[in-house]
Design a protein around this nucleic acid. Structure first.
Lengths: 237, 237
DNA sequence: GGGCGCTCTCACGGATTCGTCACGCTCATG
DNA sequence: CATGAGCGTGACGAATCCGTGAGAGCGCCC
């Protein structure tokens, strides 16, 4: 997937019929997708690189650049799923579209739930592809130590460090905004909950623990820095 | 893809109707696939790990283990495409199958050319995913013990260990994300269902059982580790 | 219907972790 | 140089979490 993996995936819907566009747009956004629209093949080829959608829903019969040509041109660079929408049920067309690189082929009239499910399935597959999880997850690297956020593990000099729950939560909060100064209030609310904010003693205690376990010279911290009167920040080289 | 990438890809066709089996087998081998056949869900679950097919074509309505259950059980370890065959065109069923991990859903009667094209498309995608390496070997090796995800069997020191259903499901959940810390909530939802999440007593009971059966010294676990306040993790190597 | 195996429940130590606190240090300020 | 706020430090009791064993309930197969 090429776009925002975190929030709702964007789907580019291409159809010359305004009714279909509205119908699909309404149902797909209701099903949790962000929707972009295009009325022609030309517009689709313009908007696709712009929005980097997680999938494209493409009508076959359109004036100008038709669905087949749009599909071919898209596939020159676009590797995420393309689902063909078509009014005809002809096997020839299906075979042609699929062999041109389409991921799926849905015939009008279609169920919106089904289309959504097929989109989910296609995007799910594409996500696995773009995340080549050969064992290693995204790792925050602080030279002295490394944090594997997905595995919830921390290494210092390639040796695993045992952190308690709160210690890790605090370190993670510092790490996701590494370099920035995070206020006492922000850290407390993030780790202990929204009803906290004034308990700076907690921070002192756990920052000390983290330094003891992670700093080369805990009495002279170089990674977890104090910003007097404000908060702390994690310094990555 | 898990099997012979060079010659014609193997497709496992599962249907209780001999006519359909013959029909599909004839056309698919004509289209350049090697075909393996299974008449029931049980047989499919046996043959799939044996032949490591590049894709599975699965009928929904079968006596005994139906298509849905077969799909679920397959997806515990099988990552290559599964295309559902069904006599009914009901949207509910399509959505359910696709959300259970099916890659495509084809309604009977179907064009054999179309099925072949959908198979080609699905296999083409899967090939991109499993580039050079052997992808997820259905056997997880933890030196002390081995887990055969497809056969649902566990060996300790090359002797088979009898695990109950829940014990195995828990071990499998730990194994597919081996090395990572998995939260109580994640484990509970994965093994007991999405409506669970707070029942940590279950975990304690079943982790204890797993340790009793798999650890060399159950009182000093080296494989199934506790992360206090967070969850558990399976430690390999 | 009886027996068996499995899941779920529960209560009790024991171990770990968390929150608390007092004290001493540092640094900016007047 | 005195002062005080803010922070680091270490220790300790309380709260939490975990392992353990036993047993009740339940479904399944003989």
């Amino acid at each position: 997937m090429q776009s925002n993996t975190s929030d709702s995936p964007t789907v580019l819907v291409v159809d010359d019929d305004p009714k279909i566009r509205r119908l699909v747009a309404a149902h797909m956004s209701q099903q949790g997708f962000s929707v972009e629209l295009a009325a022609t093949g030309e517009e689709a080829l313009e908007k696709a690189p712009l929005h980097q959608p997680a999938a494209v829903v493409l009508d076959i019969s359109m004036p100008g650049i038709g669905g087949f040509e749009a599909l071919e041109r898209l596939r020159e660079w676009y590797t995420d799923p393309v689902i063909i929408l078509s009014a005809t049920d002809q096997e020839r067309e299906k075979v042609r579209a699929l062999d041109l690189g389409a991921d799926d082929y849905v015939t009008k009239p279609f169920g919106t739930e089904e289309l959504a499910a097929r989109l989910r399935a296609a995007i799910r597959r594409a996500e696995r592809l773009s995340a080549p999880d050969n064992q290693s997850d995204p790792v925050v690297d602080a030279t002295d130590f490394k944090i594997d956020l997905a595995a919830r593990l921390v290494y210092k000099d390639d040796e695993e460090v045992r952190l308690t729950r709160t210690e890790f939560d605090l370190l993670r909060t510092l790490a996701v905004d590494a370099g920035k100064v995070l206020t006492h209030r922000h850290l407390l609310q993030e780790v202990w909950g929204p009803e906290y904010g004034a308990e700076t003693e907690y921070l002192r205690t756990f920052v000390k623990q983290l330094r003891r376990k992670l700093e080369n010279d805990p009495s002279r911290p170089r990674r977890i820095l104090t910003e007097p009167g404000v908060g702390y920040r994690l310094f990555l080289e």
